[in-house]
Simulated scan of single mutants.
Amino acid sequence: MIVTSVPRAKQIFFEVWKPLTVLFVWDVIVTIIYMRFPFRAPSLPLTLFGSVLALFLGFRVNSAYDRWWEARTLWGAMINASRNIARAARNFLPEPEARDMVRTIVLRQIAYVNALRCQLRKQKVDDEVLKYLSADEAHPSLERTNVANGLLDGTGRRIEIARRNGWIDTIQQTQMEAVLVDIANAQGGMERIKNTPLPNQYRFLPTLFTHIFSVLLPIGLVETLGYATPLGSTVASLMFLAVLAIGEDLVDPFANTVHDVPLTGMCRTIEIDLLQSIGDKAPDPMQPVKGVLW
């Protein structure tokens, strides 16, 4: 996620420079043709086309941003639920006989959020997952198709073991299970966003219409701008292409790009809070790299 307050114009230009270069060449060709063979182009249809296209692109960007913001909201709920399960384990399970069980539940939750991060970004399970699990704990979950869900199931089984050992009663078990349900619901929402792309019409048609409009734009402007047509048309096309790129950037909030929801940073936040809750040394918070928090 880009966290700097200064707009990254360079990033936007990098994403659109190829079609923009082609359009600039086309603008020059249209200008040369007009100067040799003057013609008149009706302005009203192009004006209407541009107005409708702006509304279309705005609707698409809003839809993409809604997905991005929902993903961020779900991860905010995941941070809170992780703190809650650690606090419940620490407060419900008695000391010192259940101390190891408390540590196991807390460390498994840290491993869980990092496993979920890897799944959403389509990455292999990394060391941030494995370093908090023993070999016996890691193996059953790593054999699952959904590693994160396997870790969550294992946490639920350990809460049941705590109840059978008499460390918690059924009411306390129900309260802890309710937190696990909140975690599972948040995971399900994230998987829905990741596995359900915007309908193809939302992605194909705006791209098609934007490029058609950019091709027609110099024809409508050349009579007014003359030799300045390549500059004016290219700048106008840049605005439409930039809005198109913004919608494309936000449509997948777990794509592991600079526009991604900062999963690594939020997992580190959970790691710090949970380790400190059991008295362990915690790492430093993640810092932005060149204005980007990953």
Score class of each variant (00 low, 15 high):
162 A>F: 05
194 K>P: 03
67 R>Y: 01
169 D>H: 04
112 Y>S: 08
159 I>Y: 12
167 W>P: 02
119 Q>K: 13
151 L>K: 03
61 V>I: 12
122 K>A: 14
187 Q>T: 01
63 S>Y: 04
179 V>W: 00
110 I>C: 05
155 T>A: 13
178 A>H: 10
174 T>C: 04
160 E>H: 10
142 L>H: 12
192 R>L: 14
85 I>G: 04
94 P>H: 09
95 E>Q: 15
91 N>F: 11
108 R>S: 14
100 D>W: 08
111 A>T: 05
57 L>N: 00
137 E>S: 09
140 P>S: 02
75 W>N: 02
151 L>C: 06
57 L>M: 07
182 D>V: 06
100 D>K: 14
107 L>C: 10
118 C>G: 05
77 A>F: 13
81 A>K: 04
171 I>L: 15
102 V>Y: 02
145 T>R: 14
72 R>Y: 11
142 L>K: 01
95 E>P: 05
155 T>Y: 00
112 Y>N: 06
124 K>C: 06
70 E>R: 15
102 V>E: 05
81 A>R: 11
121 R>H: 14
124 K>A: 10
170 T>H: 13
157 R>G: 05
88 A>F: 13
89 A>C: 06
150 G>W: 05
99 R>F: 12
70 E>S: 11
67 R>K: 07
157 R>E: 14
142 L>W: 03
138 A>I: 08
135 A>K: 15
75 W>Q: 07
181 V>I: 14
132 Y>F: 15
91 N>E: 15
82 S>H: 03
65 Y>E: 08
97 E>D: 12
117 R>E: 09
159 I>C: 07
107 L>W: 12
126 D>W: 03
133 L>N: 01
117 R>P: 07
162 A>L: 08
191 E>Q: 07
160 E>C: 08
179 V>M: 09
153 D>M: 13
151 L>Y: 04
159 I>A: 04
160 E>A: 10
82 S>K: 07
190 M>H: 07
95 E>N: 15
163 R>M: 13
180 L>C: 11
133 L>E: 02
60 R>H: 13
77 A>E: 15
138 A>L: 03
84 N>F: 03
79 I>R: 15
129 V>Q: 00
178 A>Y: 11
85 I>E: 02
75 W>V: 05
68 W>N: 03
195 N>W: 01
82 S>E: 09
109 Q>V: 00
120 L>D: 08
105 I>G: 00
141 S>H: 01
67 R>I: 03
73 T>A: 15
195 N>E: 14
66 D>H: 11
103 R>C: 10
105 I>L: 15
195 N>T: 11
175 Q>M: 14
137 E>H: 03
125 V>H: 04
146 N>C: 06
115 A>N: 00
149 N>I: 04
115 A>I: 01
193 I>A: 02
113 V>Y: 01
107 L>M: 13
157 R>C: 00
117 R>A: 11
90 R>M: 14
126 D>I: 05
66 D>W: 04
148 A>L: 09
138 A>W: 02
175 Q>A: 11
80 N>W: 08
152 L>E: 06
79 I>Y: 07
73 T>F: 14
